[in-house]
Computed example of a mutant assay.
Amino acid sequence: MKKRLPLKILIIVTIVIFSCENSKNVFPDEINVSKTGSLKRIEGTRLFTKTPDTYSFFKNLIRYQKNDNTYFQVIDVPNTAFAEYKSKTTPEAITRQGAKIDVYEPVKFNGFEGTYSEGPSKNEGETKICLAFGDEKFVTVVIGVCLTDDKNSKQELKSIFSSSYYDKLYQLDPLELADFTLDETILGFRYATKIGNIFIYTPDGKIEATKMLETSSYQVMLFDAGGPEKVKEFMEMSTSRLGLQGIEISNIKASDFYINGHPATELSMEAKDKDNNTVTVYQLGIFNTGTTTAVLFIGIDSENGQYFDKFRATAKSLRFRQ
């Protein structure tokens, strides 16, 4: 049976979080919080928290941060069943991937089924904690990071998590944090999900593929580039990483031009994975002149070039918000 890509991404994120031991009952097993005026919604999500004044919101990173070592962020994915996510992120499943969990506990979060976990991250001396919850239609994962020796910060993050409220009925604009606009009508693809600062679109708003090259889609990513040359370097690095994933790249074409006064780099290529799935990949990186930010459009056309021209037109319709 095929699985949605957003779910696959969440599973990968969860596994990467931890580097399975018995649970230590370190987090409340039931959380019931009322939505009051003391709670503030985290932009781009339906989660309301009481975050200390010592934390600042970093829009480009889409996370609340106290310092370089202490922060948390929220991944909110629609069209994904929590039961399926949970079955793929059990301690046994994660251990088989070579990761490690020190704590794994079931949680009832404001009526939603959930789990709490914590353990060492891939970075030495760092601990990550994770609260995940949802129902048959969505999954939300709240990820916190702190130094392993900083017990106070870990307790502070846990307190933020356990005093939060999720408003499923809140009318959320999924592009609330997007510093760009684009003409979605050119392709007609629908917004599917947001993972960090990456906005993903598919023909029907869902992805039913198990591998990246099995379905057509496009994504738009905002990032801090510093300058137009860095945009090119980032695009080249992203392309080279495909080879590390066992994807064969060929027929690369590149060009530089300007879009509304902003320097842009265009790349197109053919890509083939280990299962011989072949697609056309289109990329357009645009540097926002007068700032340090850039936007990257990546389109994957698995329909024999059916979407390629419309990918290009959609990408060129990108505009930076003032």
Rank of each mutant, 00 (worst) to 15 (best):
Met1Gly: 13
Lys2Ala: 13
Leu7Glu: 06
Ile9Met: 02
Ile9Gly: 00
Ile12His: 02
Val13Asp: 03
Ile15Arg: 08
Ser19Arg: 06
Cys20Phe: 02
Cys20Asn: 03
Val26Lys: 02
Asp29Gln: 08
Glu30Thr: 05
Asn32Gln: 01
Asn32Gly: 01
Val33Ala: 08
Val33Gly: 10
Thr36Met: 09
Gly37Phe: 04
Leu39Ile: 01
Thr45Leu: 01
Thr45Ser: 10
Leu47Phe: 08
Thr54Met: 10
Tyr55Gly: 09
Phe57Asn: 09
Lys59Ser: 15
Lys59Asn: 13
Lys59Val: 15
Tyr64Ala: 07
Gln65Arg: 10
Gln73Thr: 11
Gln73Arg: 11
Pro78Ile: 02
Pro78Met: 02
Asn79Glu: 10
Ala81Phe: 05
Phe82Gly: 00
Glu84Phe: 01
Thr89Glu: 07
Thr89Pro: 04
Thr89Asn: 03
Thr90Lys: 08
Glu92Trp: 03
Ala93Gln: 13
Ile94Ser: 06
Lys100Asp: 15
Lys100Tyr: 15
Pro106Met: 09
Pro106Asp: 15
Phe109Val: 08
Gly111Pro: 14
Glu124Cys: 03
Gly125Gln: 10
Lys128Trp: 04
Ile129Lys: 11
Leu131Gly: 11
Gly134Pro: 15
Gly134Lys: 07
Glu136Gly: 13
Phe138Lys: 13
Val139Lys: 11
Val141Thr: 14
Val142Thr: 10
Thr148Leu: 12
Asp150His: 04
Lys151Ala: 15
Asn152Ser: 11
Lys154Pro: 08
Lys158Ile: 08
Lys158Gln: 14
Ile160Asp: 11
Ser163Trp: 02
Tyr166Glu: 12
Asp167His: 14
Lys168Trp: 01
Gln171Ala: 14
Leu177Cys: 15
Asp179Lys: 13
Glu184Leu: 09
Thr185Gly: 15
Leu187Asn: 09
Asn197Cys: 10
Ile198Phe: 05
Phe199Ser: 13
Lys211Thr: 07
Glu214Thr: 03
Leu222Asn: 05
Phe223Ile: 01
Lys232Arg: 07
Glu233Ala: 06
Glu233Pro: 00
Phe234Thr: 13
Glu236Asp: 12
Arg241Ser: 05
Leu244Glu: 10
Gln245Pro: 01
Ile249Lys: 01
Ser250Gln: 03
Asn251Thr: 07
Asn251Asp: 14
Ser255Cys: 10
Ser255Val: 06
Phe257Leu: 07
Gly261Val: 06
Gly261Met: 12
Ala264Lys: 05
Thr265Ala: 15
Ser268Trp: 00
Lys274Glu: 13
Lys274Gln: 14
Thr278Pro: 04
Gly285Leu: 02
Ile286Asn: 13
Asn288Trp: 11
Thr291Gln: 08
Thr291Tyr: 08
Thr293Phe: 05
Phe297Gln: 00
Phe297Tyr: 14
Ile298Asn: 12
Ile300Arg: 06
Phe308Gln: 15
